[in-house]
Simulated scan of single mutants.
Amino acid sequence: MSNLSTNTNATSKTSTPIKEKSKFRISDKMVAVAFVLPSIILISIFVYGFIGWTGYVSVSNWNQIVPDFSFAGFANYAYLFNDFRFQADMRNTLFFTAFFIGAVIVMGQGLAILLDQQLKGESLFRNIFFFPMALSFVVTGVVWQWLLNPSTGVNLFLERFGMESMWYTNTTIFPAIAIGKIEFGLPLAMIAVVIAAVWQMTGFSLAMYIAGLRGISDDVREAARMDGATEGQIYRKIIFPLLRPITVSVIIIMAHISLKIFDLIYSMTGPGANFVTDVPGVYMFETTFRGNFYANGAAIAIVMLVSVAIFIVPYLITSRRGVGS
């Protein structure tokens, strides 16, 4: 009997700290929630709340200084997609995104492979390629505007050799394929903007690919060489497939930048003649803050949000599935 009471007392003594420990864990969770809660509230208001407000304004009749929140349905969206300028904006965004992403991937991957060869002065070259990332798009736009100006910089040099200027003042569309009122093709003036954007963002792609290449074990390459694979086959069949997640990440991030680009184009060219360098971001700014067409500007913002979400949301879903598995 005494043994039983002794065991009971021992059990009660050992159970008390467990309860205290569980209480401590609960208070820990409460402290963590208390720290995170202000961020959740601010994000809910200033991100998702304003997105909801923009969506509400986009279906209203607020196209004057005095607010008019009467329901307009999708009239503002119908106006946009029938507007010549917005159609040109979508064309320009399509070509800018395609050429910008393609050039950033090719140049970033090529430079990363070059620097991965353990060349002398690698750190110097790497810093040179990374330097443009420290600049803002506004600074880049102003600098390249001067370089590609018809009376200064590169064009002045080209004119000395009798070469016609084709930079950001050119309104030519090539090839000009007319569908309705809009001409589809590459606006030659957009080439200047692509060059400036690629110059600034190639360093980011280079950093991503350098990290990916340095993460591939040398044993993989040595095993391939022992099997008789050439250097070209090693890169084509081993290195590039292993770098595919890096490429997907670069595409997603660059697409996010290109679809909402504003500061580079606004500081460098503006809308351009016949809107050859205009993009939805510039159109939204001028429509909302200069024309006071708030509902139309909100509709442009929602279209931009949806276009970015088309790239971002599938990537986030697949990333979460990969982490969960």
Rank of each mutant, 00 (worst) to 15 (best):
A197R: 00
M208R: 07
K29Y: 15
T287D: 02
G141N: 01
I101P: 06
L147S: 06
M304F: 11
L4Q: 10
R320A: 14
I26F: 13
Q200V: 04
V106E: 03
G324W: 09
F311L: 14
A98H: 07
G272K: 05
G212C: 10
S307I: 11
S249Y: 08
A273K: 04
I179C: 03
G110M: 06
M268I: 03
L264A: 06
T230G: 15
A273D: 07
T202K: 01
A75W: 04
F125K: 01
A229E: 10
P241T: 12
V220R: 08
Y266G: 01
M166N: 09
N63C: 01
L186A: 08
F262K: 09
G55D: 03
N296G: 02
I251Q: 08
I43N: 06
G291R: 05
G49D: 08
A98D: 08
N3M: 14
T318L: 11
I26A: 14
A75S: 13
L158E: 01
N76F: 02
S60C: 06
D278M: 00
S2D: 13
F262W: 09
V308F: 12
Q117P: 01
G228C: 11
R25S: 13
F311Y: 09
R91F: 12
N170E: 09
I216M: 10
R244F: 06
L242A: 11
D89T: 07
I179K: 03
G110S: 14
V308S: 15
K237P: 04
T230I: 06
I312K: 13
L4Y: 09
S44W: 02
A255Q: 00
G108Y: 05
L94E: 03
R236G: 12
V143E: 03
G322W: 12
L4P: 01
N274R: 08
S325T: 12
G102R: 01
G270E: 00
E286A: 03
E159L: 01
P132S: 02
A78Q: 10
V323C: 05
S307K: 02
M208P: 04
L243W: 06
I45S: 05
A103I: 09
L114R: 00
L188N: 00
P132G: 01
Y235N: 15
A298Y: 05
L42A: 07
R85K: 08
M284P: 12
D278V: 01
F71H: 06
L158G: 04
E20M: 09
Y48T: 05
Q118Y: 03
I179D: 07
K21P: 00
I177N: 00
K19H: 10
G153D: 08
V220P: 05
T8I: 15
M304H: 13
V193A: 07
S58H: 02
A10Q: 15
Q145N: 12
L80E: 08
P17E: 05
F50N: 07
I41Y: 12
R221K: 14
V303H: 11
R160P: 00
I105H: 13
I310W: 11
L42W: 09
I128K: 05
I41S: 07
V142Y: 02
R321S: 12
N61D: 14
M254A: 13
I253F: 15
T172M: 04
F240D: 07
K181C: 04
G322C: 06
R214K: 15
